[in-house]
């Protein structure tokens, strides 16, 4: 009977998470391997001030479980490709030139690749980090469809997202992460919540709060869905 109960819990996902001991070990391992670039615990942002953003080498990961798609994360850690054309802190990667500011590729660091076992272990740990379930729960967004032209207009003319983000290779701004694979990388609830109030997730984000209502946020999220489902 107990065996059946255990099997039932396993099947429903109730016990599929790593044990507390294994999690603690993995946490120590990740802190030593990743902690110099990524925040695995929430930084004291008010005490650090905005200068924290200057010294940041990698995106904060303390809410990774609310943010990423688990399968994508495990896969990306084994074969990391650049998401932010100008790195995590664009002003540190940009130099003036006669043609205007340009990215200095020599300043951009590559993310190390993990083997399959390490990637699974890291992703399993990171996906448990969910301090912002309440932000996701408060988000009103049901993925849907949008006509391409309307999506493009929302992304460009109406909201100016293309000033910093690209919605296709070679299109759009360079300071923000590319968004044509955002739907593959990120959870839909996170996308909508982050667009609505980026600083609620990261007080020192370079993403402004545009003051959009739920419908406008939904149109942008649906455009990311449209282009993300087409991206390779």
């Amino acid at each position: 009977m107990r065996l059946k109960l255990l099997a039932g819990l396993l099947l429903t996902g109730g016990l599929l998470q790593p044990s507390p001991g294994a999690l603690a070990d993995t946490g120590q391992w990740l802190q030593s391997e990743c902690g110099s670039c990524h925040a695995l615990e929430k930084p004291d942002y008010p005490a650090l001030g905005h200068v924290e953003r200057v010294t940041r080498k990698g995106p904060p990961l303390h809410f990774a479980g609310n943010k990423f798609q688990a399968g994508w994360l495990e896969s990306w850690l084994q074969d990391p490709v650049r998401i932010r054309p100008a790195g995590v802190f664009p002003p540190g990667a940009v130099v003036p030139s006669d043609e205007g500011d340009v990215i200095d590729p020599a300043t951009l660091e590559e993310h190390p690749a993990l083997d399959a076992k390490q990637a699974k272990r890291a992703a399993d740990y990171l996906m448990v980090l969910r301090p912002h379930d309440e932000l996701i729960a408060a988000t009103i967004y049901e993925p849907g469809s949008i006509a391409r032209r309307m999506g493009e207009l929302n992304f460009t003319k109406f909201n100016g997202c293309d000033a910093c983000h690209s919605d296709g290779p070679g299109y759009g701004g360079l300071s923000g992460p590319e968004l044509y694979t955002a739907w593959q990388r990120l959870q839909p609830g996170f996308i909508a919540s982050f667009i609505a109030d980026p600083a609620a997730w990261d007080p020192h984000t370079l993403m402004p709060k545009a003051g959009l209502n739920d419908s406008a946020v939904g149109r942008l999220a649906n455009y990311l869905k449209l282009i993300g489902e087409e991206a390779p």
Binding site: H50, R53, V54, P91, D101, A163, C164, G172
Partner: peptide
């Protein structure tokens, strides 16, 4: 100056001359 570097230079340029790295994509 710190805030300008962090939040403004992407569009307004690292020297503030309006030639930021995003400019080619801006209308």
């Amino acid at each position: 100056e710190n805030l300008y570097t962090i939040y403004c230079t992407q569009c307004h340029g690292v020297t503030g001359n309006g030639d930021g790295v995003n400019v080619p994509a801006m209308s």
